[in-house]
């Protein structure tokens, strides 16, 4: 019984498909990378699974409680917020908007777990990119979800921060959580992720990482992602 099953999923921007008839499964405790060229629909896929973008077609089963790490660039880092308050948002789903404030020590524990002891009162606007990403990971820790979706979690981070955050990922994996992460660093994917979904709007391949990331598949993904028909006809597979 997969923890997440995506059936024939199509997500559109306007009428253009960002994800086109995609199907795959994530096993409980699975650790799967989502790779593909820019414009392959990786972020829309994650956003659809997180319930942020209603599918145009198809269904997503068993997603249950998921925790999403959005791309850091999508956040307003100029907003006057302390690290503690930013992390406490992680308790929102469990405790609601206000009761989550009653547990400030949990924010401090989560910050300590990502190597940010003593940062509770620091404004998020004063953090480096790496520290900010650690704060978002601390928020994920408080969410305590069985399925974790990460959208480019290691972009523009130094090697030390990536290594520390990979440690957090391994801990989650050890605890039996399922992880689905959009990544660009294929060496890292080969090293850390047993399974991979290669996406180029459609699923090019899904399965053991070494097989999926073959040169042939990657070339096919690039061609598919770059294809753009000015006057595309309505999809024959559409319901």
């Amino acid at each position: 019984m997969p923890v997440l099953a995506v059936h024939n999923l199509t997500v559109t921007h306007g009428r253009r498909p960002a994800v086109h008839h995609a199907s795959f499964r994530l096993a409980p405790g699975g650790k799967m990378a989502v790779v593909g060229p820019n414009g392959a629909g990786k972020s829309p896929l994650l956003r659809a699974i997180a319930g942020l973008h209603p599918p145009a077609e198809g269904r997503i089963e068993g997603a249950g409680r998921v925790a999403l790490l959005p791309q850091a660039a999508a956040l307003d880092r100029g907003f006057p917020l302390s690290c503690r308050d930013a992390v406490l948002f992680g308790l929102w789903a469990e405790a609601g908007a206000f009761r989550s404030l009653a547990a400030p020590e949990r924010a401090e524990e989560a910050l300590a777990a990502v190597g940010l002891s003593g940062f509770a009162r620091r404004p998020v606007g004063s953090l480096s990119a790496g520290q900010f990403q650690r704060v978002l990971f601390a928020r994920l820790l408080l969410q305590d979800a069985p399925v974790i979706l990460l959208d480019e979690p290691f972009n523009a981070l130094d090697a030390r921060t990536v290594e520390d955050l990979l440690g957090v990922l391994r801990r989650w994996h050890g605890e039996g959580r399922s992880i689905l992460a959009v990544l660009h660093d294929l060496d890292l994917v080969r090293r850390e992720f047993p399974e991979t979904l290669l996406l180029a709007r459609e699923v090019i391949a899904c399965g053991p990482t070494a097989q999926v990331l073959s040169a042939e598949n990657r070339l096919r993904a690039r061609m598919m992602a770059e294809a753009w028909a000015e006057h595309a006809a309505p999809c024959a597979r559409a319901a």
């Binding site: 942020l52 959005p70 956040l75 907003f79 917020l81 948002f89």
Partner: peptide, 19 residues
């Protein structure tokens, strides 16, 4: 206060936790 702060800071995350 908190809903508006979350909606400003990270609207995508807000929606994912039911805001």
């Amino acid at each position: 206060w908190r809903p508006l702060a979350l909606e400003c800071f990270d609207p995508g995350f807000g929606r994912s936790v039911g805001l």
